[in-house]
Simulated scan of single mutants.
Amino acid sequence: MKKMITIISIAILLSACSNTSAGNDSELLVSAASSLTEVMKKMEEEFQQVEPDIDLSFNYGSSSKLRSQIEQGAPADLFLSASVKDMDLLESQQLIESVSISPFAENRLVLASLEEFPESVDFEEVVMDAEETIAVGEPDSVPVGEYTRQALESQGLWQPLEGRLIYAKDARQVVTYVESGNAGLGIIYSSDAVISREITAMLEVPGQRDPVVYPGAIVAASENQQAAAAFLDFVTGPTGQAILEDYGFLPGDGKTP
């Protein structure tokens, strides 16, 4: 992973991509992690105030699924990932523009519930004493599930809880399981808990080694790289960072974790 886009590197990238101008009519195809669904609606609204000629089209899913689509040649101009690993895999195959890689946000895992937790309760007490099922992301194919398994394994809780887990295809489905009552508890991103109208309680999940880093990068096969660079620059800029903060994300630190 490279450092965050600098003004110089953006200028180099833009000058190298002469096929598309950010000021021309164009459709920008953005493959974005499902946990970015709500914040990207606001991001699109604000971006089009400054770039009205760029139409944004989003493809949401788990980062691993989106990475696989890019590997298979599916059309995409920009990849906004919730997984450094998936971005690294694309970079190793030269499928994204390395100079454009930019960590634009961070997140944390929380245990979420529709019911308030008792005061002074700790995480292990809640998950071990509860009778409810617990929704988590599929650990072998979904970043939020992989992060969850790592955290629970570090606390010696993964195997004791395995029989009570419901697996979801992406981060948004974990939230849906909790909001619908199909799971009594769920391990989700803190940003999803912040924007949920139904979730009223959350506890930070112990055992998280590092924050969840969200890197963005321009797809090498894109024929719309200038527009992609313009939107990524907006996301990493002051307005984009303020929007991300409003939706419960932590600011990206601009460097590889």
Rank of each mutant, 00 (worst) to 15 (best):
Q159A: 12
Q159R: 10
Q159M: 11
G163D: 14
G163Q: 11
G163V: 02
R164Y: 04
R164N: 13
I166D: 09
I166L: 14
Y167A: 12
Y167F: 15
Y167K: 15
A168G: 15
A168E: 13
K169E: 14
D170E: 14
D170S: 11
A171Q: 06
A171F: 02
R172L: 06
R172I: 01
V175L: 14
V175P: 11
V175T: 15
T176R: 07
V178F: 03
V178C: 06
S180Q: 14
S180H: 10
S180F: 03
G181L: 03
G181V: 09
G181W: 01
G184F: 01
G184I: 01
G184V: 03
L185V: 04
I187K: 06
I187R: 05
I187C: 09
I187Y: 08
I188R: 04
Y189G: 15
Y189F: 10
S190D: 15
S191Y: 04
S191T: 11
D192G: 08
D192K: 05
D192L: 15
D192R: 05
D192Y: 03
A193R: 05
A193H: 09
V194M: 08
V194H: 06
V194E: 11
I195P: 01
I195R: 08
I195H: 02
S196Y: 05
R197K: 12
E198G: 13
E198I: 02
I199W: 04
I199T: 04
I199N: 09
I199S: 10
A201M: 07
M202A: 13
M202D: 10
L203P: 07
L203S: 11
E204C: 00
E204P: 06
V205P: 03
G207H: 11
G207I: 10
Q208W: 00
Q208A: 01
Q208M: 10
R209P: 00
R209L: 10
R209H: 10
R209Q: 13
R209E: 15
D210P: 00
D210W: 00
D210E: 13
D210L: 07
D210Y: 08
P211H: 00
P211S: 03
P211A: 02
V212D: 02
V212R: 01
V213G: 08
Y214C: 13
Y214R: 04
Y214K: 07
Y214W: 05
G216S: 10
A217R: 02
I218R: 07
I218S: 06
V219G: 14
A221M: 13
S222W: 10
S222T: 13
E223Y: 00
E223R: 04
E223I: 01
N224K: 13
N224E: 09
N224M: 03
